[in-house]
Simulated assay, not measured.
Amino acid sequence: MLKENFNHYSLILDQTARRVKQYAQASFSLNEIDLTVDQWAVLKTLYENTDLTQKELADKCGKDQPTLTRIVDLIIKKDYIKRIEHPSDRRCLHLQLTEAGLKKVEDLAPTVSKFREKAWENLTKEDFEHFTRILNKIYQNLEQK
Rank of each mutant, 00 (worst) to 15 (best):
V42C: 08
V42M: 10
V42Y: 03
L43C: 08
K44I: 08
K44S: 15
T45R: 14
T45A: 12
L46Q: 02
L46K: 04
Y47M: 00
E48Y: 13
E48D: 15
E48S: 15
E48P: 08
N49F: 03
N49D: 02
N49E: 03
T50I: 06
T50E: 14
T50R: 12
T50A: 13
D51Q: 04
D51A: 13
D51N: 14
D51C: 12
L52T: 07
L52E: 06
L52C: 12
L52S: 10
L52Y: 06
T53E: 06
T53N: 06
T53P: 01
T53L: 00
T53R: 05
Q54P: 08
Q54G: 13
Q54D: 13
Q54F: 06
K55F: 11
K55S: 11
K55R: 11
E56S: 14
E56T: 04
E56W: 14
E56G: 13
E56C: 02
E56D: 13
L57G: 08
L57Y: 02
L57P: 06
L57F: 07
D59Y: 07
D59C: 10
K60E: 03
K60S: 07
C61F: 00
C61E: 00
C61W: 00
C61H: 01
G62N: 10
G62L: 01
G62F: 05
G62Y: 04
K63E: 10
K63H: 10
K63V: 04
D64G: 04
D64N: 14
D64Y: 12
Q65H: 06
Q65G: 02
P66I: 11
T67A: 12
T67G: 07
T67V: 13
L68A: 07
L68Q: 13
L68H: 03
L68M: 09
T69I: 02
R70V: 12
R70Q: 06
R70G: 08
I71F: 10
I71G: 04
V72E: 00
V72N: 01
V72Q: 04
V72T: 05
V72H: 01
D73Y: 10
D73S: 15
D73F: 07
D73P: 03
D73H: 12
L74Q: 15
L74F: 14
I76R: 02
I76K: 09
I76G: 01
K77D: 11
K77T: 08
K77Y: 00
K77S: 11
K78A: 08
K78D: 13
